[in-house]
Write a protein that binds this DNA or RNA. Structure first.
Length: 468
RNA sequence: GGUGGGUUGGCCGAGAGGCGAGGCAACGGACUGCAAAUCCGUGUACACGGGUUCAAAUCCCGUACCCACCUCCA
């Protein structure tokens, strides 16, 4: 089987052919840690986590690098507002990002380099670009270093734009720029900025420009040519366009393909701090089970916009309960087993540019079949369970995975509860055998009132704590 | 002004020339002492107006509306 992916540079879906056979190297733009991650940020993490899982299933060894932009204007401003060092702000939000990975079951990237740790690599790259005539230090004494857009004819290739048709930036005064579209590789430090937020260079003290850091770190950890560069669609221009220009102008082959995930909208607009329509991961996870939130984010195709709605998320939670319900019931009967091989149609869907919606249709079919086998149990059920767990494992929503099981914090209390409820269910069984249904229902009502749901199965009654 | 993407049944959400993806909700049935859970069944949806074709949600032309990017942004 061949994994095929859409390349947003060429706008075509093509076979994934890695630079190094058997290995896939991925760089995706992480966060500028100026605040805790919102649902839109984490959608990207979930998308690339599913990609990684699928590539690993396909037998590839996957390396993922995601940068952490830990210094920029907003982080510095926030530190000033809050009366603490800018790096304390950055670090706190970096930890919040890691907490979000964890709560949604995302495996952390192979490595997350920080911008501030890669200044020498950036200086080296700027020197190369200056020598090659594609960059220049501003002659206004600002310490800024700019990329010379006019010197690179391919500029605009990624976003399919022509330099002359672009609107020039109006906000930034073009002081030291030769062309208004030139972008900063390096930002000279300004008066009043903390000393800790600047690093020495041949052009004066300053700090990394956002675009350059990604080029420098991608090259350092993945080499001059790697397989996939990813990120949110909003980064395609200017950020990714600029990265591509810098790296290729510096003589590097850079990314073989580009993968952009669509945005998560709230109230008809992209979720973003500047619009103010954000929903933090930590808040959403308080209202809905984390596994349902993850499922919600991955259930739509990664290139489709998700218009966030609480109702849709609530519906998703119900759909997830049907799936997890099957897995837990089946596991009680035949044992959990291990995640197994996925059906061919599921694999075909995933191979086709991660067609998760089509893959979920196959998953649901297997769950329906499995639910039908629940009455009899046996090897057929065990096989269906393995197949379902295999599919859920690819998507990172296998309820029996340690990632989700550990949540409850199993303790002696569970055993005690099971014993107590077991006694009550025995009383109910006796009452039912005597056809004393009023007494039987009283027991069930009592348990329901305590948040315990009872269902009678061909193998006897089972209980669950409501909402878990 | 430029570059992309979108509009699918009550809701979510795939598909991209020809057999009604899938889920949620609803209704009917089976199972149950009654429930719950589960299973089975029930829907002729593709923004609008033209056109191409034996056949269009899917291709072409036009119109309307929406989103993203061209500025920090996953």
């Amino acid at each position: 089987m061949t994994v095929r992916l859409y390349d947003s540079a060429t706008r075509e879906t093509t076979d994934l052919v890695p630079v190094v056979p058997g290995q896939v190297s991925i760089y995706h733009c992480g966060l500028t840690v100026q605040g805790p991650p919102h649902l839109g940020h984490i959608r990207k993490e979930v998308v690339f986590d599913v990609l990684r899982r699928w590539l690993e299933r396909a037998g590839y060894e996957v390396t993922i690098i995601a940068n952490v932009t830990d210094v920029d204007d907003k982080i510095i401003a926030k530190g000033r507002e809050q009366g603490r060092p800018w790096y304390a702000v950055a670090y706190e939000n970096e930890r919040a990002l890691h907490a979000a990975y964890e709560v949604l079951g995302c495996t952390a990237p192979t490595y997350e380099p920080r911008a501030t740790g890669h200044v020498p690599e950036m200086i080296e790259m700027m020197q190369t670009l200056i020598e090659r005539g594609h960059a220049y230090a501003a002659d206004d004494g600002s310490g800024d270093v700019y990329f010379d857009v006019r010197s690179w004819p391919a500029y605009g290739a990624l976003s399919n734009q022509k330099v002359d048709e672009m609107q020039a930036a109006e906000d930034a005064p073009p002081e030291g720029k030769r062309d208004p579209r030139d972008f900063a590789l390096w930002k000279g430090s300004k008066a009043g900025e903390p000393e800790t937020a600047s690093w020495p260079t041949p052009w004066g003290r300053g700090r990394p420009g956002w675009h350059l850091e990604c080029s420098a770190m991608a090259a350092k950890y993945l080499g001059h040519e790697f397989d996939i560069h990813g990120g949110g669609l909003d980064l395609r221009f200017p950020h990714h366009e600029n990265e591509l220009a810098q790296s290729s102008a510096a003589g590097q082959a850079f990314a073989r393909r580009w993968m952009h995930n669509a945005m998560l909208n709230l109230g008809g607009a992209k979720m973003s701090k500047s619009v103010g329509n954000t929903l933090s991961v930590s808040e959403v996870v308080k209202r809905f089970p984390a596994i349902a939130v993850r499922y919600y984010l991955l259930a739509a195709h990664y290139r489709s916009v998700i218009e966030y709605s609480e109702e849709a998320l609530a519906e998703t939670a119900v759909a997830v309960e049907r799936i997890t319900g099957f897995v837990t019931r089946a596991a009680e009967l035949v044992g959990p087993g291990e995640p197994g091989e996925v059906p061919a149609e599921f694999a075909a869907a995933m191979d086709d540019d991660l067609a998760v919606p089509a893959a979920l249709a196959i998953l649901n079919g297997s769950v329906t079949r499995g639910n039908g086998q629940l009455a009899t149990g046996g090897p057929e059920l065990a096989a269906t369970l393995a197949e379902v767990r295999g599919m859920l494992d690819v998507l990172g929503v296998d309820p029996l995975s340690p990632v989700w099981v550990a949540r409850g914090g199993a303790s002696g209390a569970d055993a005690a509860l099971d014993s107590l409820i077991g006694d009550l269910l025995d009383q109910r069984a006796t009452a039912r055998a005597d056809k004393d249904f009023a007494a039987a229902d009283r027991v069930r009502d009592q348990l329901t009132a305590a948040g315990i749901e009872i269902e009678d199965t061909p193998h006897g009654p089972r209980w669950t704590v409501k909402g878990q």
